[in-house]
Design a protein around this nucleic acid. Structure first.
Lengths: 233, 233
DNA sequence: CCTTCTCATATTGTCGACAATCTACAGATT
DNA sequence: AATCTGTAGATTGTCGACAATATGAGAAGG
């Protein structure tokens, strides 16, 4: 629990969007559970107006589904959706890597190499491989995405798809990819970018993501994901 | 003016979303104009509640920008955004073409060939090249997208990006790509898909979209897009 | 015992009003 | 004259209540 409940935003609707997103990703609101507007409004001490605006946003983020006059439910995870999401990532982050190879500055390249070295050192020192893998991984990918300098791409990846990706990672947390292997792949991608080889960078990024998708797929098949947690009746 | 104002949906908010999207794309609400909630609510005969929910959706669609306590404005078009959007299309529709090559049925292939033949016949018969180009083009792309069978991809392309793409096309309507050239490219893409050559299909689709982006870019440079139209004071 | 219809209940959709915040204009000050 | 400040007006954010719709339990009938 790092970022605690104290989120002060300009508008209640924005606050609610962030909070609800977090609660869904973390499983506080179990997968597939019904969302009662009066109940949630009471829980957060707000009226239904801003709450409904937040729900509209969550729907476009793909975190809940809403049906007119029936209500909203938290989405459920399934393998097709997982694979679809990662295929989309493959296309978009592949393009991001290609653009990064064209546009990234030498300084950013240096910083990325530093990041990978830090990650390597962290791996050598700690046994807490999952934590290191998790954050190093995210950081690397986010930097490549931003290096593309394509605002549309950045927005879809870091806002629209991000929550979904985190959910799938969370619910398949048991079997994570080998962080050392991931690090090697990151290194290869960065080399391609540093050499301004856009084609290669795209290819490697695609394979990297495709491989991650396969691992998650296997994890889901074993887990047979269904159970949320920490929900109140 | 084909689909007239009569849209009956389950909820006022959904109606408003559709109407406002259409009005923005068609220029009834001029680019960059401020959106007054009381005024719009009065115009449509609804209260501000559903209207605000629609505005939240329009914001996520990238058609308006909202600032807390300040209000909403229709977006403005600029070249960077256009290029970013089309680069994203390139990545995503390229992937769609690749997936289509793997997954499309023989019957769908036949239908697509028929579509292209109809398009050809229409071009030979009519001088109204732009109309034919417009609709034939859209239809072809939408079918490829759906043939990918990737729901996430379909959703982002046909819902999140669609309105934006239509706007750029409308505001650069003067100089459209040569429809016969576009048709040739479509034919080549479809051949690749029919032959199950995913790599080639992706490559050709990317080039096709990249070329369209270049033409739109030139059109925007000439037009120096700024003026909306048909708006009331 | 199962099916179907009815009605009560709860939930969602919508509205009008109030509170908080920003914008613009006028006046004062340097 | 230019800049700053303060107030008035308007706009956005939020709230509680009412209307419309779906859900579920129970009765009636087969």
């Amino acid at each position: 629990m790092d970022k605690v409940t104290q989120i002060k935003s300009a508008t209640l609707s924005d606050d609610l969007t962030q909070r609800l997103t977090a609660e869904i990703v973390e499983g506080v609101l179990p997968l597939g559970s019904k969302i009662s507007e009066p109940e949630l409004a009471k829980r957060y001490g707000v009226s239904r107006g801003p709450l409904r605006e937040a729900l509209v946003k969550l729907e476009t983020l793909g975190l809940i589904t809403r049906t007119a006059n029936v209500g909203a439910r938290v989405i459920e995870l399934n393998i097709e959706d997982l694979l679809d999401t990662y295929t989309l990532r493959e296309a978009m982050e592949g393009m991001a890597a290609r653009l990064a190879a064209e546009l990234i500055s030498e300084q950013e390249v240096a910083e990325l190499y530093q990041l990978l070295e830090d990650h390597q050192a962290h791996l050598d020192a700690n046994q807490d491989e999952h934590y290191a893998s998790q954050y190093g991984n995210e950081d690397f990918h986010l930097r490549i995405i931003h290096a593309s300098q394509n605002n549309k791409l950045i927005r879809v990846l870091t806002q629209d798809l991000y929550a979904t990706i985190r959910m799938y990672r969370r619910y398949t947390a048991d079997s994570r990819p080998d962080p050392r292997q991931a690090l090697r792949e990151h290194k290869a991608i960065l080399d391609a970018i540093a050499n301004r080889e856009g084609d290669l960078a795209e290819l490697l990024m695609r394979r990297h993501i495709s491989r991650a998708a396969n691992l998650l797929r296997k994890a889901m098949l074993q887990n047979s994901i269904s159970q949320g947690n920490t929900g109140q009746p």
